[in-house]
Design a protein around this nucleic acid. Structure first.
Length: 111
DNA sequence: GCTTTGACGTATG
DNA sequence: TCATACGCCAAAG
């Protein structure tokens, strides 16, 4: 197991219940800025039976990354809603569920 | 070893 | 808000 993978898993596992984080944010927390794709790649290869809150990981836009209508897509929606997170048209309002809405600003040096 | 691919992100128009 | 372009890089072919 690569060290980077370990850190990515740890970063995902650290997302609080009822909150979501973007691939980019996960990459940063894993010490891999700019490697959002690596996070996605890893999740894609990760078996579904892995005890990881993968469903809390979305695109920076709040869009669910999986193909709409696919198995995983529906599963993700279900899991998110089960935590009280709103999902409309495959999207989550980051203004309310995106890690207190502070991580992104923290990352991009805004405000 | 070169090319393609991917659960992505930002900038620009 | 949508589209297009480019950056990123580990794996797979």
């Amino acid at each position: 197991m690569q060290d980077s993978h370990q850190r990515i898993y740890a970063a995902i596992a650290a997302i609080p219940r009822g909150r979501v984080a973007s691939y980019g944010a996960i990459a940063v927390r894993a010490g891999l800025p700019g490697r959002a794709r690596l996070v996605g790649k890893l999740l894609g290869k990760t078996p579904a039976d892995m005890p990881l809150p993968w469903h809390r990981v979305l695109r920076a836009s709040g869009q669910i990354a999986l193909p709409p209508g696919s198995r995983g897509f529906r599963e993700q929606c279900r899991l998110l809603r089960a935590e009280g997170i709103e999902v409309h048209q495959g999207r989550v309002p980051l203004s309310r569920f995106g890690l207190d809405g502070n991580l992104d600003r923290q990352l991009w040096g805004m405000l």
